[in-house]
Design a protein around this nucleic acid. Structure first.
Lengths: 219, 219, 219, 219
DNA sequence: GATGAATGAGGGTTCATTCAT
DNA sequence: GATGAATGAACCCTCATTCAT
């Protein structure tokens, strides 16, 4: 209906953004090195050369994809819940759900990209992300645990730091692994249940008034 | 007894094994695609051509490295503790420690390799590993949790599956991330403490005799 | 008289000419292959696409730049001094000065372009230029030398052809090399002195044993 | 007779040197940018990849080719004729012949490469060569001219510098242009005659008014 | 067995050229 | 006319793989 050029097409859309989306997806699925620029181009419906209008190198494309979405991803936590009127446990619940209950595929891609490919391909970014992402996140949680201890919500001998690490790392890897659920059906789990059960278990462990039973007698 | 070791001590020409060690290390550090066979060769103190005496392709080298060490790694769980005389919590403790309290660098490399590179490079292997490794492991733990519930050790409403997933995934990723502790100091944690605290928190969460305090009032 | 210049002053939209100027300059400075059309466009203050309004291909742009200025450059010699009343030496002096005492940067660019880039890029043009430019020029000079011999101005055994070649080639390369005077200060020389000294030496060599006849009386 | 491998051949020869020769030739003929590594490889009878065994980049290949032969080329002048017993004119004759009477094609290629391609491609090398090659050479000649003046061989008002420049530049360009003699027959000239006539004219110009002293007795 | 020179397919990058706006 | 996004062929460079020694 519109004049369809055979080998040439101009699109008025927001090309850079489309390219970033495509790159994010393809990189996350295949890994950075396994992905040819042709793949990205194809996924974006353009040709290889077009990418070079917007990005100088393949690596810059990776970086841009990561940076673009990272801000977005972590925008969610910024300023979250320092609301001291709520009990610590509630704030932890909210924080975790805010971070992980995200359906956007781009977030999932980003996570996979950062945990896997970026570790080798753009170590600088990866390590920065580790510091400003997961580490910071479990730091926040650990801090909430301390608050909870002060208020008597949690038992004072709980190791909030280790627990918070587990919570964050575990959820991340589980969510990434959901991408393999087709090949390994036993992997599949409802994500909301995963997140909720997991947080509740964590909180229950912190509360746990009962003394560990045969704790020191083992091993 | 000492004498019989002669034939099995690492002989200077036990090339295949040396190559696998080198490959495992270099692949894990740099990623599969980022690693040239020259790098592996150099790490093994041989030249590139030598690798082709023992392995047909680069991918076969990766496969061999994974397979060779995988048996070793998961051999640890085989036949572990179905000793019904011990309480479930104790068996869980033992199981987790057996699996994760491993100092061997090869285990760490293997873990990183399987979580990261293999996902893209040899998806078949990766998914098989997922099924026979992590999934199986948290299955065992979930099963022990069920036993514990039956015996009254754990509260009946606990979500053992989600918890076991968290435990296994979280520890894995934490251990992998320890490789970045140099670049991100806040990451570093004593691994024994991580493992122990983590298991105890998990068990405490399952036991949790005290009624959740403000549990249902939120959200 | 001033009024009539109106139509022929460089109008702001005299694009083709501006493009040729820019191309000439940029090609000469960077070489043909090292120059992107974007460079030419930028130098001309337009965008790449504009060039294609006026020239079909990059090579045609090169050709046009050469042709446009070449006429101009060699127009100077056309009809020059067959004035038989002057001694041959005088006519040689005038000829050489006419050809080489040119301050216009475009001439210098053109020379560099023809000596260097064109040799590989548009060999046809290069070789044509050789024939109609330098070769013809030294032919004229050699002819004047013959006339001078006939009149007894020059010694009969002088090799006018070789000398004329030297004169023409040498001046050309020296003038081109002046573009490198910034990087190689020892190269720099006053161009008028170069040209004059050079011609006089040439003439002196032809005259040889006899004392210079009307040496100081000319020009 | 020897097993002829279909697509694989090992040559025991001095491969790097062969590559340099081929590169020098092809670069000089087509220009640096117009030459594909495949062209060089083909000229050397190998494939592209082989070049990368010996040279890191195309530019390094160019540099190596220039450097390798440059030493060789200018080795000829080193230590030449400070023999003060000979008249300056004789020493100039010897010097010029030593420099330019060279039949080796590699010298001719090198000259063309340095005068043309290198000016844009590796400006650093080009300018260095200008300083240490041509400029130095005509400096030596100018110095000999001064000596000649002191001894009364040459007239004191001669511009030795300009003359020496002309001599060096002119011969260089003439020799390079001989490569185009096939396309422009009028260009062709016997190189020995060119060199000799040229030097004699130069010397005659310096001597000038005085009758040539030992003109025919030398060399 | 071990070596390392040689190969060639693959992919990142450049840039002349096209064409919708 | 002018623009600049889009194209794709070309080319440099990498590196898994082969094989004569």
């Amino acid at each position: 209906m519109a004049g369809k050029a055979l080998r040439w097409e101009r699109r008025p859309d927001d090309r850079p953004h489309e390219l970033l989306e495509a790159a994010l997806k393809v990189f996350a699925e295949n890994g950075y090195r396994n992905t040819r620029l042709d793949d990205v181009a194809e996924a974006a419906g353009v040709t290889k050369g077009t990418i070079y209008h917007y990005f100088d190198t393949k690596e810059e494309l990776l970086l841009s994809a990561i940076e673009h979405y990272q801000a977005l991803a972590f925008g969610r936590v910024e300023g979250v819940l320092q609301d001291v009127h709520l009990p610590a446990s509630t704030r932890i619940r909210l924080l975790v759900r805010k971070m992980f209950s995200v359906r956007a595929p781009s977030s999932r891609y980003l996570l996979a990209l950062l945990v896997r490919a970026a570790a080798h391909e753009v170590r600088r970014v990866h390590d920065t992300w580790l510091r400003d992402g997961p580490v910071k996140l479990w730091g926040l949680i650990a801090q909430l645990v301390e608050e909870g201890k002060d208020r008597g919500e949690f038992r004072p001998d709980a190791d909030g730091d280790a627990g918070a690490r587990l919570l964050v790392s575990g959820l991340m890897l589980q969510l990434i692994w959901q991408q393999h659920a087709a090949a390994v059906p036993a992997l599949a789990i409802d994500e909301d249940r995963l997140i909720d059960s997991t947080v509740e278990l964590f909180l229950a462990g912190l509360r746990s008034s009962a003394p560990p039973i045969a704790y020191s007698s083992v091993d």
